[in-house]
């Protein structure tokens, strides 16, 4: 499903060169729920950004469903993001001017599909995440947990190959976090591949596999077995 071969990422920070990821090789199978752990600055988010095509590696190769994410044009990468990847961010990243249903529909709106054709699917997804009654609410009218549910529904609307979640509960209370993890686990049980970055070991335990990064390198890879 996702394959990284010696993927590295370097940044220039002022005069200093930062080696955020060092020759990481990784194979993520379809249907896996991978939790990525590690301390701050270990390269977790960088790894997620590379897998999601938000960024490109300085060296090495990355494939998603055998399609390369390296050495391709920005437009090709953008289309992969739009059609094959679903993102869930720590700060939800919803557009404040759009209602819940419009936010969920956004990836397909970018595809050029009229809202009338998307709306029922978006409402269904909102129903699945427990927001069937709040489809016309704007983000400011929703709680943190509700906003993250909208973000999850948005990530699912294109039926992506993989869901990438970057600290999805980092901004939520423990009860709400629990609900979100359960939601993700349910999705995984339905066959959805998920990669989740977290620094919380309890959260990581929801996954079927945990990898740990340290100073940009893969230090540990544990399979927890099926739920």
């Amino acid at each position: 499903m996702i394959k990284l071969t010696n993927a590295s990422k370097k940044y220039q920070q002022g005069a200093r060169e930062v080696h955020a990821l060092k020759e990481v090789s990784l194979d993520i199978r379809k249907g896996e729920f991978l939790s990525v752990m590690g301390p701050s600055g270990s390269g977790k988010s960088t790894l997620l950004n590379l897998m999601g095509g938000l960024d490109q590696p300085s060296s090495g190769e990355i494939f998603i469903d055998t399609r390369p994410l390296h050495g391709i044009s920005d437009d090709e990468l953008t289309l992969i993001r739009r059609r094959r990847v679903g993102f869930i961010f720590q700060f939800f990243n919803l557009l404040p001017i759009l209602t819940a249903v419009e936010n969920v529909s956004l990836p397909l709106l970018l595809e050029g599909t009229p809202l009338s054709q998307i709306k029922s699917k978006a409402i269904d997804l909102l129903g699945q995440v427990g927001l069937g009654e709040r489809i016309e609410h704007r983000p400011e009218q929703l709680s943190g947990g509700e906003m993250q549910r909208v973000a999850i529904a948005r990530a699912l609307i294109t039926s992506p190959a993989v869901l990438l979640a970057d600290e999805p509960t980092g901004n939520l209370d423990s009860h709400t976090s629990e609900e979100i993890f359960m939601l993700l686990r349910n999705l995984n049980e339905e066959g959805q591949t998920i990669v989740m970055v977290t620094h919380d070991s309890r959260a990581a335990a929801y996954g079927t596999r945990i990898i740990t990064l340290k100073d940009g390198s893969l230090s540990e890879d544990i399979r927890l077995g099926e739920h």
Partner: peptide, 16 residues
């Protein structure tokens, strides 16, 4: 700027 980032992350091309 943030909205642009979100749209780009969700698959909006530069032309869009």
């Amino acid at each position: 700027r943030k909205e642009i980032g979100i749209l780009r992350a969700l698959g909006a091309t530069r032309v869009q």
